[in-house]
Design a protein around this nucleic acid. Structure first.
Length: 227
DNA sequence: CCCCAGGCGTCCA
DNA sequence: TGGACGCATGGG
């Protein structure tokens, strides 16, 4: 793929302008993984409601989820949507991790093996797998989401036909394989997407990526809560 | 009423 | 291989 954009420069520019986004700060890997599953096609605000319910019920762990009846789990995670699907998949995920010997065993795997292992689980697709690898296991696995794909295509970094794997290769091939950078860059792209790269707009209005203009920071919603 | 949200699995050509 | 569709709550 031709490199018509210096992503390292884009990253530096965004980080200087908006600062660290502090995604999933000081959260344990179990909560990160549970959140990664629940946030599929769902706002983080709704996921937090589900996480609070789980925490108050002392069920924010794989062992607790594994032994929680499906009906009870559905009630707890209801605010995060798709609760019938997600409750089953969350239990299956918890069971599989326990069966594999827990995160301490899984972390012995190489990054490609770990990705393959998670992708084999029902309900874990490429974005969820890469989120788990990056945010819970600190592996340099770049996360592509709807925002990143949309931004990449709008700015013609990517062809209109690019899929997940093509987009991931584009970012990975240009950037230093540093989990901290992948973490921050992904979070910054989501923030840009939310503010400037709306689906209904044919072009990104006032997008700071268009020419590296640094916008007034007041245009951005401050990043409250976690992640 | 509409559209959207940090996707994924299934079905079908 | 890729497009259409269902899944579900909550907000603008």
């Amino acid at each position: 793929m031709t490199e018509n954009c210096d992503l390292t420069e884009v990253y530096k520019s965004l980080l200087a302008a908006f600062g660290p986004q502090n995604w999933w700060p000081a959260k344990g890997p179990e909560e990160m993984i549970i959140g990664a599953l629940l946030t599929q096609n769902t706002t983080w605000e709704n996921v937090e409601k589900a996480l609070i319910n789980l925490r108050l019920d002392h069920r924010l762990s794989f062992s607790a989820i594994s032994t929680t009846p499906l009906s009870a789990l559905q009630k707890l995670i209801k605010p995060s949507g798709y609760f019938r699907q997600k409750s089953e998949r969350l239990k299956a995920l918890a069971d599989a991790i326990i069966e594999a010997g827990g995160l301490n065993q899984l972390k012995e795997k190489t990054t490609p093996d770990l990705r393959t292992w998670f992708l084999a689980l029902k309900g874990v697709g490429p974005e969820t797998a890469d989120s788990i690898l990056l945010y819970a296991f600190k592996r340099p696995s770049f996360v592509i989401d709807a925002y990143t794909l949309r931004i990449g295509k709008r700015h013609q970094w990517l062809p209109a036909t690019a899929n997940y794997d093509k987009a991931q290769s584009y970012f990975t091939n240009q950037l230093q394989a540093d989990p901290a950078i992948f973490n921050e860059f992904h979070a910054l792209l989501v923030q840009i997407g939310k503010n400037f790269c709306r689906p209904q707009n044919p072009v990104c209005k006032n997008c700071p990526l268009l020419n590296y203009l640094v916008p007034d920071q007041n245009q951005f919603q401050s990043h409250k809560g976690s992640p």
